[in-house]
Design a binder for these strands. Structure first.
Lengths: 157, 157
DNA sequence: GTGTCATCGTACGTACACGAACGATATGGG
DNA sequence: CCCATATCGTTCGTGTACGTACGATGACAC
């Protein structure tokens, strides 16, 4: 795969005028986050134990397991998803019989979500595989580096 | 936002049986990567200088700026995108007159892509904003931490 | 009470992202 | 030369992810 195609030299020296480092797409934080997220999603899909469950569905189910009952909007905030995105995720989980809903008796705008028996069974099983998925994703790093990465990521969110 | 709703205690002690740390979604690498990628995309969209250009389109344009002419498939590998995804990205860039294509004279399976004059003008302008976008995304960290994060991310890809 | 404003859930459009399948073309082995 | 195999680009289907806009409801000032 020769890449001698014509690396431009002498480009008009746009940014990074001052010091040294050229601006390379592959070194930019946004690019690296996209690629890392891609790989993490792929590992999740093969390792979580149910190929039809996506990462967002998984975190939604896990939060419902933690809180037993939540409004759709609050669930979205807890898992960091836009309410429009949340709407689609919840719809699919309800269609599969994993999640149930009822009107909030105290606030007619709200819908309260909870796990069905089947949803509870499924999430119990998936949570067994969660740690292995995370371990596999972080495998290229040693334990200290893993902690560092988690810390740095949480600080840029 | 009271969260006293019923934190289950006494769960069946699935994984993490040995030592200490409970398994929390918010601390998992996949979840943090999704959230960080979300934020980076949002900063990109407001800072790159053209709200209609997405991160993947940007990296494709930048690679075409670097190599002047590439097959669609090779471009996809260079920017880490599936060929099916690449197809949509390239289609939109061509529809907007930013990218041009011609058949590869030496290999009839291939389509060679290149920037149009307008695409070249646009990418020159966007590349001016690229460094500021990356800086803004990494702003919560000091310079050493920024380098660490980039290094750790590139190692789990 | 009534009007103003925020919040909740929904609907629509655009763009990624990937798996799967497909036709056309290349390539290497026999 | 011919066939098996691989690659290239396309198409289809599913599932995020977000912006925008909408109607219904709730909260609060007046």
């Amino acid at each position: 795969m020769r890449s001698n195609v014509a690396k431009k030299q002498l480009e008009s020296k746009t940014a990074s005028s001052a010091a040294s480092r050229p601006y390379r797409i592959e070194d930019q934080i946004g690019y690296l986050l996209r690629r890392a997220h891609q790989r993490a999603s792929a590992i999740f899909q093969t390792g979580i134990g149910d190929p039809n469950i996506t990462p967002t569905q998984y975190s939604s189910l896990a939060k419902l397991d933690e809180y037993t009952e939540l409004s759709q909007n609050l669930l979205g905030r807890l898992v960091g998803m836009d309410k429009a995105t949340m709407q689609g995720v919840v719809r699919r989980l309800k269609e599969r019989g994993l999640v149930d809903s009822r009107p909030d008796p105290g606030d007619a705008r709200r819908t309260l979500l909870s796990l069905t028996t089947e949803g509870q069974r499924l999430v119990n099983r998936l949570l067994l595989n969660g740690p292995a998925v995370s371990r596999e994703t972080l495998k290229p790093l040693n334990v200290q580096e893993q902690k560092q990465l988690l810390d740095l990521l949480s600080r840029i969110i």
